[in-house]
Amino acid sequence: MPETAQRELTFAQAIREALAEEMWRDPRVCIFGEDVAEAGTPFKVLSGLVEEFGAERVLDTPISEQGFTGMGVGAAMTGLRPVVDIMFGDFLTLTMDQLVNQAAKVHYMSGGTWKVPMVLRTTLGATRRSAAQHSQSLHAWLCHVPGLKVAMPSTPYDAKGLLKTAIRDDNPVIFFEDKMMYKQKGRVPAEDYTIPFGVADVKREGEDITLVATSSMVDVALGAAKLLEGIGVSAEVIDPRTMWPLDEKTLVESAKKTSRAIVIDEGYGRYGVTGEVASVIAEGAFFNLEAPVKRMGAMHVPIPFSPPLEDVTVPTEQTVFEAARKLCGKA
């Protein structure tokens, strides 16, 4: 990995840089979505791109998620490499037929004749006081569908590298960004680099317990790991980075080493990503486990608008710390 730059960017800047670099590199790359041009999205992630590449390549669409997602699928099938922007992950529900029945199936059903090299960028994450229809983390819905790839970066560095990989992938990729993380800073090399899909990243090495965390929960897990250090528990934090393809080997090996695991994800705990990952670990590391694999996700409720209520619906450093401590018998 190139290590030349000690430069720091925000998560949003890293996304924008990846897009700009890919748009310079490949004239087929274009952006569709609501408020992506002049407004640069409500999160200001795309600010400046319309000026740089013009309104033909950074295209504001009507408020019609199903319509412009379908447009993205068609454009991808016919030669472009569109990056579709769905402002809030909650609106994915409107795009489901285009993603699940069209984008995910076309390559298979056409016997490999057609492909859909489309990226759909969207957001997840609560605690932004955005209420029940703008705070969900629905990535599990898409992880469930064969034919779609799902990436979930947790740092600016990963965001740039994974987004470039997504754009260059010939399959539809759903790219989830935590909307609370856009202002977070991190080291991002100025040069071109990609991060392969299906390769987990060990964010912190440890011996006593594995904390598998995704996207917004990686920082939570790292914070919990720091707290655990205070009571003599060494936690390993692993970020799968892509939920599909999933780096099962790294997860299982870590759990085998530490004998205990907690899976933390901001999607709903019930029937969610955590259940899948926990199952992979339980199957792969069963005879090396000291304790049941624990899942921690969002509470099974509509995300409340009330800040004190909203804050208790998602895992926090403290709740992860408590769960880990209990699992390690340090209560």
């Binding site: 004998s259 005879f287 090396n288 486990l289 000291e290 304790a291 018998g329 209560a331």
Partner: peptide, 30 residues
């Protein structure tokens, strides 16, 4: 008893009936 401890007990020929667990809820750990 944890799965790991059970496997280990088998490998080491230890009778788990004679072990007092020190894990959560008295679980026997490796």
């Amino acid at each position: 008893i944890s799965p790991k401890a059970r496997r280990l007990a088998k490998e080491l020929g230890v009778d788990i009936g004679q072990i007092r667990g020190t894990g959560p809820d008295g679980t026997i750990t490796s």
